[in-house]
């Protein structure tokens, strides 16, 4: 049985559809991410799951029970807010046990739970402090500890790391995942940061304009995007309009693109004669190798540390390459190749 089942969920605000016939299942102990750009409906979906919004139509089941109409305080969920939403007048300790107090947990059990949580989130030295006396990372840990203390069936994260600096974000990301695994929690994580989603999730649900665009394991989303939107939103991708001219053999096609003729090797057959294709910048191989050998002019070069970003002009079409080492500069010619299996058929637009 799924921990959470969302069945044909619709949420409309004054004629605007924020969530458009979304259906998904989340397994018990699974960490899933709702990923999408601002305004795609992911936070609305989270609010529907937590009970702060009531859907226009559709069903939400948590632990097999339909929870539509059940107020947030009666749902077995807990949220980690983007703003942390700590109670500013209560100490760290009081914040951590707030939920337990509301649920009428006996004092001895409350103290035991507090001790356990304090150990997990490493806040022992700060229990008497007020939230404004803590750093961003510590506040984040209090918010996480407060949500964990009530032992929710489902924990919901609403972009919890967006207020932290890059270094701390990486550290807290690992902590969250570790705690989620240790407690065996079912977690739904909302973010617009694709790197965060790829690094943390068991599964990613990509949302666009209120709809579920694609779902799957991070690797599947990254290496086999289904649509132009997913290819473009998750990681960087070079997307080209292609015309299939010939099926060369089983699983190999010849296509014509604005950067020239290419050969594609794909397990799935193209769904139309004209359709977009994509390839990831880091799959480019320096030099001329295989059927897709290309030469372009470097128009922009940016050293990124562990790789170099090149924007290359190929007959008026710009393509992005990420190469480990590159001696050429802007205006120089560069030879590169794309392996046929690194080219991906996308769904036809519209």
């Amino acid at each position: 049985m799924a921990a959470i089942s969302i069945i044909d969920l619709v949420m409309q605000f004054d004629g605007f559809t924020a969530v458009d016939h979304v259906s998904l299942d989340v397994g018990e102990g699974e960490f899933v991410t709702l990923l999408g750009p601002s305004g795609c409906g992911k936070t609305t979906l989270l609010n529907l799951i937590s009970g702060f919004l009531q859907p226009t139509s559709g069903r939400i089941e948590i632990g097999g029970k339909d929870v539509v109409g059940v107020p947030p305080e009666a749902r077995d969920t807990a949220i980690c807010f983007q703003s942390y939403a700590l109670f500013p007048h209560l100490s760290v300790q009081e914040n951590l046990i707030f939920g337990l107090r509301q649920k009428g947990t006996p004092r001895t059990q409350r103290n035991a739970r507090l001790e356990e949580i304090v150990g997990q989130v490493d806040l022992g030295a700060h229990l008497d402090k007020l939230p404004n006396q803590l750093s961003g990372g510590q506040q984040q840990r209090v918010a996480l500890g407060r949500a964990l203390a009530v032992r929710p069936f489902v924990i919901l994260f609403d972009e919890p790391l967006s207020n932290l600096d890059a270094k701390l974000r990486e550290q807290v990301r690992i902590e969250i995942r570790k705690i989620q695994r240790d407690f065996g929690l079912t977690a739904i994580y909302v973010t617009h940061d694709q790197a965060e989603a790829l690094a943390m999730s068991d599964r990613i649900f990509i949302m666009n304009n209120g709809r579920l665009e694609q779902s799957g394991a991070p690797e599947e989303i990254y290496y086999a995007p289904r649509t132009r939107f997913v290819a473009d939103f998750v990681g960087s991708a070079n997307i080209l309009d292609a015309e299939i001219t010939e099926e060369l053999s089983q699983g190999r096609w010849h296509v014509v693109t604005p950067i020239g003729p290419l050969e594609i090797q794909s397990k799935s057959a193209p769904r139309a004669k004209s359709l977009p294709i994509c390839w990831r910048p880091e799959t480019a191989i320096a030099g001329k190798e295989g059927p897709n050998a290309l030469t372009g002019t470097i128009t922009h070069r940016a050293f990124q540390g562990h790789f170099t970003d090149l924007i290359v002009d190929l007959g008026g079409t710009s393509q992005r390459l990420q190469v480990l080492r590159n001696a050429e500069g802007e205006g120089d010619k560069v030879d590169f190749s794309i392996m046929p299996h690194d080219l991906i058929f996308l769904e036809p637009d519209g």
Binding site: F52, P72, E73, I79, F87, G99, Q102, V150
Partner: peptide
């Protein structure tokens, strides 16, 4: 968010 957090944690 503070009021929502309280509600989410079971406060009526």
């Amino acid at each position: 968010d503070v009021l929502r957090a309280a509600r989410d944690l079971g406060a009526g």
